[in-house]
Design a protein around this nucleic acid. Structure first.
Lengths: 351, 351
DNA sequence: CTGAAAGCGCTAACAA
DNA sequence: TTGTTAGCGCTTTCAG
């Protein structure tokens, strides 16, 4: 009867099989050559003892843990979840495990997490970094030897860190073109207020595309909210109440889109008859909505997968600039021609 | 100029600070006493070298990695995501990191994952185990020394593994009582087909409650689907087309609920005028739906948090039976009185 | 093909 | 208060 304390070690197996520990190691690490007879004996002994090689021992010796880290703002966010899923898939295919944590947009917390990940001697870490903060935590991580790849968002000062992003510019452009094509001129932009520079991409694309199409952006229709439900709702409500002349709203994220939908319902605005709504990011509820929401889908899963590949395979990749993944305009039922087609009457539309 | 290969070690820091490695260890592990002057020197040297203690070395010595494992069916499922979030919160508060993986309902894959987690010498692993399969992987994990706690679902043969579950029985009961109270008699049950025994809880609660209320369960109204979108949709469509007399459907999960909503819309059934819909599991879209869906909310976050606590704090906890967390009936707008109120005419309600 | 031995970076006695 | 030393479980020369 084996009264083990803790789990069996390579030494136990060696003893039980009557071989040296090196042989056991060879059997389990697949290295070197072992005769079939010996291998069988070792395997039998191991099975008997419920032996599992310790990743700790191996990791120490190999100086790598065989895992990667992933830090996202929030695992319950469908976009983040998709990203995690992609990373998980790639990591698994490469035989790595995943250490996950959520920073909830707090740079300090993020820095703590990164520190912790660095201590784990992970083979690399992928991050959808917090928009605020200096990114000093990331710089420090790189200094102490960590390999880092950003996903979905790159940080202003950190161009030495490779990144895989969605082509938001094209996505927003496609959406604006679609809306303008439908006849909309007074399109509102519901954006996220990000102290960092990166977040402005969508808003800039919005303005630029509008201008290119000969529509002068109306500053009063461009509002932004903090990335939280209440703030998003307040922004949407403020906008839709203040400006009854908007015919379409482009929400720059699913939280903003949710707010727009809720507010429209609250205000008894029919979609798309009274107001068209579209948003960036495809999420499950977009299809369940009535009418289903037209969106710009961003490849969350692919971004995760790609980031992981980049981290683990294309190691030397660097200054080539961020990888941009294509977005897709998914037209559903939430956008239509503007309320009062200028073809019918040209009287002021203010209600 | 320090041209380090890999990261600095405790030895490097000791040398740079002119102290012994034990002192450095004391400074970083918080153990023992170190004079302020020495501590400062050590810290300065460490900072200079960008030193981070290696969790690998420490883990090997301490024979624990300071992390826990979590395996769920699918990280993109909102319920799972909530669970992960809860585990993350608790783990973080206890200073542990989280190794996450998804088994996608495949017992073989799950077994692989568990194997891998055991090798990591985690302090424990939490699982929302696959419904199918023998659970042999879990038994083996326990044998080789892993501490395991189940969340959301326990496995039939594994009563020695503690579990924290939602009180589904009460949840379904409350929902059925509510529906019957509204006047419904022909209530359909859309369940998930689970070869394992555990999944039957909701269906059993459905039947029992109905019976207690004097309503004979109609076998033709109890259907089940595989836990996938297409299967759920097919089941819902089949049901609603075949049985035009149902006045309410109780979906046993959010995928099923989604299917019911979609099918009802497809069939031009107004909710709740033509048919009432309610489901188990609260998810973001339930509120965005029109009308918002009445649901039984199950405490995903709490279950994760609790499971983690149980794993890390209440270590001896065992045979006391599973911990049941309360569910909550969230009444929104998707349920109303049945189509043809029996108060109007008393003609036979039999199909 | 196999075994003995030397560490990987760290903590914990034990001495000083 | 501090340094020395002996491993934790594993891989990997280097001999045999």
């Amino acid at each position: 009867m084996t009264t083990e304390r803790g789990s069996a070690t390579i030494k136990d197996v060696a003893a039980a099989a009557g071989v040296g520990i090196a042989t056991v190691s060879r059997v389990f690490s697949g290295t070197g050559a072992v005769s079939d007879r010996t291998r069988e004996r070792v395997l039998a002994a191991a099975r008997e003892l419920d032996y599992r090689p310790s990743a700790l021992g191996r990791g120490l010796r190999l100086r790598r843990s065989g895992g990667i880290g992933l830090v996202v703002p929030d695992v319950t966010d469908p976009f983040c979840a998709g990203l995690v899923d992609g990373v998980l898939a790639c990591a698994r295919s490469l035989g790595e495990h995943l250490v996950l944590d959520a920073a909830h947009g707090d740079p300090a917390r993020e820095a703590e997490i990164v520190d912790r990940l660095v201590e784990q001697r992970l083979d690399g870490v992928i991050a959808l970094p917090a928009a605020t903060g200096s990114g000093e935590g990331w710089r420090a991580a790189v200094r102490s030897g960590a390999r880092v790849v950003f996903a979905d968002r790159a940080l202003p000062g950190l161009h030495e860190i490779p990144a895989v992003l969605a082509d938001d510019r094209s996505g927003v452009r496609a959406l604006v073109e679609y809306l303008v094509g439908l006849g909309h001129r007074r399109i509102a932009f519901l954006g996220a207020a990000a102290p960092g520079a990166a977040a402005g991409v969508r808003e800039r694309a919005f303005r630029d595309t509008l201008a290119e199409l000969g529509v002068t952006p109306d500053e009063g229709l461009i509002v932004s909210a903090r990335p939280a439900r209440d703030s998003a709702y307040a922004a949407a409500a403020g906008l839709l109440q203040r400006r009854t002349d908007v015919t379409a709203v482009l929400a720059a994220g699913h939280l903003l889109g949710e707010a727009a939908v809720l507010v429209a319902r609250e205000l008894d605005l029919r979609v798309p008859a009274d107001v068209s709504i579209a948003m960036v990011d495809d999420v499950p509820w977009a299809e369940l909505c009535d009418p289903p929401l037209t969106v710009v889908a961003r490849p969350a899963y692919d971004m995760g997968y790609r980031a992981c590949e980049m981290l683990l395979r294309d190691r030397p990749r660097r200054a080539a600039g961020p990888v941009l993944l294509p977005t897709e305009l998914v037209i559903r039922g939430s956008c239509g021609p503007p309320r009062s087609p200028r073809t019918a009457s040209s009287r002021a539309t203010g209600r």
